[in-house]
Write a protein that binds this DNA or RNA. Structure first.
Length: 424
DNA sequence: TCTGGGGTCCTAGGACCC
DNA sequence: TCTGGGGTCCTAGGACCC
């Protein structure tokens, strides 16, 4: 039987902020989404105040009376990404196989290790705490879905002290925990599926585990069938230690202020393409098409609305920012309608293929240089001297549309000039 | 005034093939 | 009256995840 652990940081973004601001420990802290829009992370104390995940901050703030005692921080992805890298590297030492599942969680394969899984979980939790300052919880089970569920129990029930090993439970105890878990809390069961399952009488994780898999497959999909089997301890989801290349790369942002000028939309689109193309080259892929999207503010019910997107195909795949940006701007010109106040734009790179297997276009004159050397140099400079040290002129320098970030903490770990200062 | 961003997988249905 | 059978590929849309 496999032994899988899911290690998940508690309130990750908020905990990263607190790690560098001890004065914020044990206090209500929230981290806001881009543009300071929604609450995306909450410290325990902020949760206790009833602030909901994804809640618009301006609403929570009003409810609490100008925010009350809550410290609200703009998101600082440079910091979170770097802290994530540290935690993941540390965790990788504890197991031969690791799947990094998201910025704040990973699966570890503990199968066959000599140490008791629960004891290993506690050791790993202490180490992460001591070395990074971040609290994590560990869930252990024979399948990914059960490890996820165990992690939820460890987080929710202080009795577990941060580590829950469902594999070590007696079957009757395990069933009791499954029965106490609402079906909506099972990994892979979202709100839609949950209400359909409940309508059929399956309210708990135990109900789902006990259902006939074939019937689930017929009524819902193989996804639900697999989830049910995983809850029974039958592995259906493998641990993937090598992250596959992305099949699409997107970049989109809400604007800090409404945009009406096509010139400014073009700046934003060029900026987003540049960002995405960098990621594209990092995984050594090329894009065969670019999709562009613009829209007005969906929440401004009385303002005229417009939302549209289109896909621009390339004659041959490219990873050259200039080529991709030209295509995107061609799309933008077709999409643009005057007279609207635009709130958001985005781009999506699609039809990604490995650059090493470039497929040339029969009718495009052959060019031995597809801008690869120039792009490689550009990436190197920007890696070394910081993002956007060199950028396309079309990406603009003034950026009236740039997102709103009223209260971003310093990039403590990735900028020399923003290092924290210790006093003795 | 103020409402995020970036992904994946599956299914159904249409187009097309022999 | 009655109009085959089996397959692939692509796309849009839905659902999920963090």
């Amino acid at each position: 039987m496999a032994v899988l652990a899911l290690v998940d940081c508690n309130s990750f973004y908020a905990a990263c902020e607190q790690a560098f601001r001890p004065d914020l420990l044990d206090r209500p802290v929230v981290v806001l989404s881009n543009n300071d829009g929604c609450v995306v992370a909450r410290s325990k104390e902020a949760k206790a105040l009833g602030i909901r995940m994804g809640e618009p901050w301006f609403q929570a703030r009003q409810r609490l009376g100008e925010g009350g005692a809550v410290t609200a921080l703009s998101s600082n992805y440079a910091l979170y990404a770097d802290m994530s890298r540290r935690v993941m590297r540390l965790l990788a030492r504890f197991a031969p196989c690791q799947e990094i599942y998201s910025i704040d969680e990973c699966f570890l394969d503990l199968t066959g290790l000599p140490e008791d899984p629960g004891a290993l979980g506690r050791r790993l939790r202490d180490t992460v705490r001591r070395w990074t300052g971040l609290p994590v919880c560990v869930g252990i089970g024979p399948t990914k879905t059960l490890a996820k569920l165990a992690n939820r129990l460890a987080k929710q029930d202080a009795g577990w002290e941060g580590v829950c090993d469902l594999g070590a439970c007696a079957a009757a105890d395990r069933d009791r925990w499954l029965a106490a878990t609402p079906v909506a809390a099972v990994w892979g069961i979202g709100p839609r599926l949950a209400s359909r399952l409940e309508a059929l009488g399956m309210r708990s994780a135990l109900d789902l585990a006990g259902a006939d898999p074939r019937r689930l497959q017929r009524t819902f999909s193989v996804v639900v069938e697999r989830t049910a089997l995983e809850l029974r301890g039958v592995p259906c989801l493998a641990l993937e230690d090598l992250p596959p290349d992305r099949q699409q790369i997107q970049c989109s942002r809400s604007f800090g202020a409404p945009v009406t000028a096509p010139r400014e939309l073009a700046e934003a689109v060029t900026t987003f393409v540049s960002r995405a193309a960098e990621k594209l080259r990092a995984q050594r892929s090329e894009a065969g098409a670019v999709s562009v999207m613009i829209r007005t503010n969906l929440f401004a019910a009385d303002a005229p609305q417009y939302s549209n997107s289109l896909v621009v195909g390339l004659p041959e795949p490219s990873a050259d920012t200039r080529v991709l940006a030209r295509a995107a701007l061609r799309g933008l010109r077709r999409l643009y309608r005057p007279g609207f106040r635009y709130a958001k734009a985005g781009i999506l790179l699609l039809a990604l293929t490995p650059a090493a297997r470039h497929q040339a276009d029969l009718f495009t004159p052959d060019r031995s240089d597809r801008g690869e050397r120039l792009m490689a140099t550009l990436d190197r400079i920007n890696r070394r001297y910081g993002r956007e040290t060199i950028l396309l002129a079309g990406a603009g320098l003034h950026r009236r549309w740039a997102m709103h970030q009223a209260n971003r903490s310093p990039r403590y770990t990735t900028r020399w000039d923003e290092l924290p200062v210790a006093r003795c």
